[in-house]
Design a protein around this nucleic acid. Structure first.
Length: 289
DNA sequence: AATCCTTACAACCGCACGTAG
DNA sequence: ACTACGTGCGGTTGTAAGGAT
């Protein structure tokens, strides 16, 4: 189509870090006119910036409601789970953490979490529960409904992820996933976030049904949801929902229980408590939320 | 104290999609 | 149907700050 590169590759376009003065100009303009029509922003404000740069500065830094600073263990857990489920779909992941930008999450993953996960997976590689069909066992955990800490409870993406288009960019390791499958995975993820195990199971089954309708029974058989009674010390925990997501996840090799073990290891008591809603050391097995 | 290396994060780049004309 | 534009997204780069030597 021969679209010219970006806007404003012309002479006099400023690059590099934004100054406070530029920020003020941009924010005050957006306060008056609202975000959008970015092409007109440099023209109307006199900013020597490309429209794209203005948009990025706003969405990644100046936009109200953005949380800055360290990621909490809870946020880390969400990112790790979602990255394993969805791959490098940062915008989709960011939709579950409305206070964080996709850029923030992407940077945090690249600089912190990727290394951590890799470090974890390396020594434990032999214990991966992979089957001949390259199945990956995921153990999403149960969020205790009685706990005020089940932080994922009720959490929904800001936008309806299954309808989000995944455009552009280099192929991720989950590229083989179809849009439908991505939606199903998202539905499953939401399903096991349900506060009550019954609701979680029900939602998972619904997601399964949808998948079956669209992909056929054989494909649907690759996703197994089951209930599981878990005894943890002297505590009888409600049925946990366990998903086995196999071909759906393709080459993804993350084992959630390992990730969770890492989270347990890494998290000091109170953060742990906030994340899991239970005390550490209760279970040697995959953690029950 | 100076230099080199590593880390963290802001910003840029290029591509793809949706849509209005 | 085609084109141009506006925007979103993911990957990559640039750079400042802190740490190691």
């Amino acid at each position: 189509m021969g679209r010219p590169p970006c806007c404003d590759n012309g002479v006099g376009v400023k690059k590099g870090p934004w100054t406070p003065e530029e920020d003020i100009v941009l924010v005050s303009y957006i306060q008056q006119h609202g975000p959008g029509n970015w092409r007109s922003v440099p023209e109307n404000t006199g900013l020597m910036r490309c429209s794209k740069s203005c948009r990025l500065r706003w969405t990644n830094y100046l936009r109200p409601g953005i949380k800055r600073g360290n990621f909490t263990p809870h946020e880390e857990g969400i990112i790790i789970h979602l990255q394993a489920l969805l791959g490098n779909k940062w915008a989709a992941i960011a939709s579950y953490l409305p206070q964080r930008t996709d850029n923030d999450i992407k940077n945090y993953w690249n600089t912190h979490l990727k290394k951590k996960v890799k470090r974890l997976q390396q020594p434990a590689a032999d214990s991966f529960q992979t089957t001949a069909s390259n199945a990956v066992t995921c153990s999403p955990n149960y969020y205790s409904p009685s706990s005020s800490h089940h932080s994922l409870q009720g959490m929904q993406p800001m936008s309806s992820y299954p309808h989000t288009t995944c455009s552009g960019g280099a192929p991720s390791n989950n590229e083989a996933m179809t849009d439908t499958t991505t939606g199903v995975v998202s539905n499953l993820f939401q399903a096991w976030m349900r506060p009550s195990p019954a609701a979680a199971t029900a939602n998972c089954k619904i997601a399964m049904q949808e998948f079956q309708e669209e992909q056929g029974a054989a494909a649907a058989a690759s996703i197994v949801c089951k209930e599981q009674m878990v005894t943890c010390g002297d505590v009888n925990r409600p049925p946990a929902l366990e998903m086995v997501v196999a071909p759906v996840m393709g080459a993804s090799t993350a084992t959630f229980s390992l990730l969770e073990d890492w989270l347990l290891d890494d998290m000091p008591g109170q953060a742990m408590d906030g994340f899991m809603g239970i005390s550490a050391g209760c279970c040697a097995d995959p953690i029950m939320f």
